[in-house]
Write a protein that binds this DNA or RNA. Structure first.
Length: 743
DNA sequence: GAGCACTGC
């Protein structure tokens, strides 16, 4: 039972006692009749005993007594177990026997599917209905009830809960699973739980569960917590290295794969590459090269696997190897995948792994405020994980396309945790919201660079989420309620001042999903033609809005999407996100306001609302025809995928991508004057490095001052309000604050 | 006229 934190103390005590008594009664019952499920009071089904017999074979069962012993003595323990040990399914069930008095047990997972599928499995094992005693909680789907005592959830979800239940009082045990993955959310939870444990020494236990690497680091971080080691159940994997470094890992991967196919025993192959383009090329080459070998080698089914592949194509990796050829030579399945096959998707029957040693990784440059993707060498832990994929069903082999020496001396032990590779404005806002004021002294397992934290604080200050002292403002608190980048939260909260909440909800939702437009390689022209009908000359943001409106007019038809090269899944998910965001707006009593699309200023309002949050991401066209970002003076170009076919003097951009050049992706035509009017402090000409841009702002400054002298009361937001006499005028906080800035 | 690893609220 998850205790509602709003319950009065007496009531809470009362409830706990009741449950305690209930358990006593249940225990007696169990003694009387071992066939009764203590959680439901029903008789166990036949399946229960069958599953129980299998469960008892899992290595986790041998550790049960030791687990209880350690839990008795310590508040936090580290549990290390390989795949196949049963830790994710069994440990939480063991803990239910002792630690669910009056409160629940939470077990976090980095991914939604894992939370869902594990919950389903455990409900079966416990012989209860999913969503009753055992449930799960992920974004858009809460499958729990007031009976739920064990809840699997995404780490992000637990963090959300912490915002409204700062001591996580609903839980008696919190288990952080897959801790070695070091997701952003898990890392924040580490620090948070460390603080909460101090406040709840008697009634909170914490279990950190991880694969083999890193256990020592976790132990040390949690005040030398004890380690419980559970052996895995995996088959040995033989590792091979190359004698010399390879010139091209792609070529080497292809030829190694062909050699395995030609000379090794039957068994499927998994090849790791870095991205879509490489994977498609490799699949094509492998297939054609093997065909050239004729009937002496077996037929192959070579399938690509990456996340942006549509689900029906992803399913192909589960199809079996082709039938033997006419000479009777066995067929083989070859999966060529990104890192998605390292953690997220498990394919049975893989016996050979080809590991070139690279993956695309996010890197963050705080000085340029740019996140980019870079193909980089993997870590030892990652290489180990990849090799392990060959030993899930029988002994396997792993071919590493680098030398043993480079494995030992060049690969780092563990991939840098995400928190060291990301823009942290969202994280900082969350921490502030969780009541952590002193970020510099917050106990991060790996503290981010001070410059990254400074950048985040600075950005949040400019957005109005923090005051001069770095304290969370009321506005910042509102921003933190949204599952969005702080900049987009600001856009959304500002949209009501410009009477375009619905339009902005749509745009923000679409910006949160990937790939609105499809552009298959063999139909690029058709895709571009189809896209043309949605194009709005002001740019990509409003073009997105047009797509969504059209999608709705066509009753969310998937056929219509297919015919128009629109990603149906993305739009459906944007629709869900939009509903969730609208709900959060309503919950915070932000008025939903609107403008008639025929109003001459309709698009101006939309663009001004975008500027309200995105003003830090703007660029100015210089005389030589190149764009320069307004504040950092970086030379940039509009990405060719943008619908903008002219070069406006000022643009707002959503994303800065560093590939062959500095590109701005998702771009909209704006006016320099609006920038100055809306954020005069930020665009004060004295702060602008580039001379041309500075001179422009000086011109604008003079112009605006002149206008204000003539009509001292004229304010942008008020102008708008006058046009909306029908809408009840409401002096909100942000209107008055933008007024005070302008004076 | 270029190209998006993977998650998540």
């Amino acid at each position: 039972m998850f205790v509602d934190k709003n319950l009065g103390t007496t009531k809470q005590k009362q409830q706990k006692i009741d449950i305690g008594e209930l358990e006593q009664v249940q225990k007696k019952k169990v003694k009387q009749n071992a066939n009764i499920n203590p959680y439901t009071g029903n008789q166990y089904s036949g399946d229960y005993y069958k599953i129980l017999a299998v469960r008892k074979q899992l290595p986790a069962w041998d550790a049960k007594e030791q687990l209880f012993m350690l839990m008795e003595q310590y508040q936090v323990i580290v549990l290390q177990g390989e795949t196949g040990s049963g830790k994710t399914t069994q440990i939480p069930q063991f803990l239910l026997e002792k630690y669910s008095k009056g409160r629940g047990i939470a077990c976090t997972q980095p991914r939604r599917v894992a939370a869902m599928s594990v919950a389903k499995r455990v409900a079966e094992e416990m012989d209860v209905a999913l969503g009753e005693e055992v449930g799960y909680s992920i974004r858009f789907e809460e499958k729990t009830s007031n009976k739920t005592i064990l809840k699997y959830m995404t780490d992000g979800m637990l963090l959300r809960e912490a915002m409204h239940d700062p001591k996580l009082e609903r839980y008696s045990v919190v288990i952080l699973d897959e801790a070695h993955e070091r997701t952003l959310n898990t890392d924040i939870l580490f620090g948070l739980l460390k603080e909460i444990m101090l406040k709840r020494p008697e009634d909170l236990k914490v279990v950190i569960m991880s694969a083999t690497m890193d256990a020592e680091k976790f132990q040390k971080y949690f005040h030398n917590a004890p380690l419980l080691d559970i052996p895995g159940r995996v088959y040995p994997v033989e590792i091979f290295y190359t004698q010399k470094p390879e010139k091209s890992y792609l070529d080497a991967a292809i030829s190694t794969t062909i050699n395995i196919h030609a000379y090794e025993d039957p068994g499927d192959i998994l090849v790791f590459l870095t991205g879509e383009e490489e994977i498609e090329e490799a699949c094509k080459k492998i297939t054609s090269e093997i065909q050239k070998l004729g009937d002496d080698v077996g037929p192959v089914r070579c399938v690509p696997l990456y996340s942006t592949l549509p689900p029906n194509q992803q399913q192909k990796i589960f199809e079996s190897a082709p039938q033997p050829n006419k000479k009777g030579v066995q067929g083989r399945k070859i999966v060529v995948a990104t890192n998605i096959a390292e953690t997220s998707i498990t394919i049975d029957g893989i016996c050979y792994v080809v590991d070139p040693g690279f993956s695309k990784q996010k890197v963050y440059n705080p000085r340029l405020r740019v996140e980019s993707l870079l193909a980089s060498p993997i870590s030892k832990a990652s290489a180990q994980q990849r090799a392990g994929r060959a030993g899930r069903t029988r002994p396997g082999k792993c071919y590493r396309l680098y030398t043993e020496q480079s494995f030992n001396s060049e690969l780092i032990d563990n991939t840098y945790p995400e928190i060291l590779r990301s823009n942290l404005s969202s994280v900082v806002l969350q921490l502030k919201r969780l009541g952590i004021d002193d970020l510099v002294h917050f106990d991060f397992m790996d503290p981010p660079a001070p410059e990254t934290l400074m950048r985040a604080l600075e950005q949040l200050y400019y957005l109005g989420a923090l005051d001069e002292e770095g304290n969370l403002t009321k506005f910042g608190q509102q921003m933190s309620e949204f599952p969005l980048d702080p900049q987009l939260s600001k856009v959304l909260l500002s949209s009501k001042d410009f009477y375009v909440t619905d339009e902005i909800l749509t745009i923000v939702a679409l910006l949160s999903v990937q790939q609105v437009f499809q552009r298959p390689k063999d139909q690029q022209q058709q895709a571009d033609d189809a896209r043309y009908q949605f194009v709005h000359q002001d740019g990509d943001h409003i073009t997105f809005l047009n797509v969504f409106k059209s999608f709705k007019e066509h009753n969310e038809s998937s056929d219509w999407c297919y015919q128009n090269f629109i990603n149906y899944r993305s739009l459906k998910s944007a629709d869900k996100i939009k509903a969730q965001l609208r709900q959060i707006m309503q919950k915070q009593q932000i008025p939903l306001t609107k403008t008639d699309p025929s109003n001459a200023l309709y698009y101006t309002y939309i663009k001004k609302a975008l500027i309200a949050g995105m003003f830090m991401q703007t660029a100015h066209l210089t005389k030589n025809g190149a764009y320069m970002t307004v504040k950092d003076s970086q030379i940039v170009a509009i990405h060719p995928c943008s619908v903008l076919n002219h070069k406006p003097e000022w643009i707002l951009y959503q994303e800065f991508v560093l590939t062959s050049k500095n590109y701005l992706r998702t771009v909209t035509d704006i006016e320099g004057k609006w920038l100055y009017e809306m954020c005069p402090e930020y665009f004060n000409p004295k702060t602008i490095k580039n001379i041309e841009t500075r001179k422009e702002f000086e011109k604008i400054e003079r112009q605006v001052l002149e206008e204000q002298r003539r009509k001292p009361d004229l304010l942008t937001v008020e102008q708008i309000q006058r046009l909306h006499k029908d809408v009840k005028s409401e002096r909100t906080q942000s209107i008055s604050s933008s007024k005070s800035i302008q004076k």
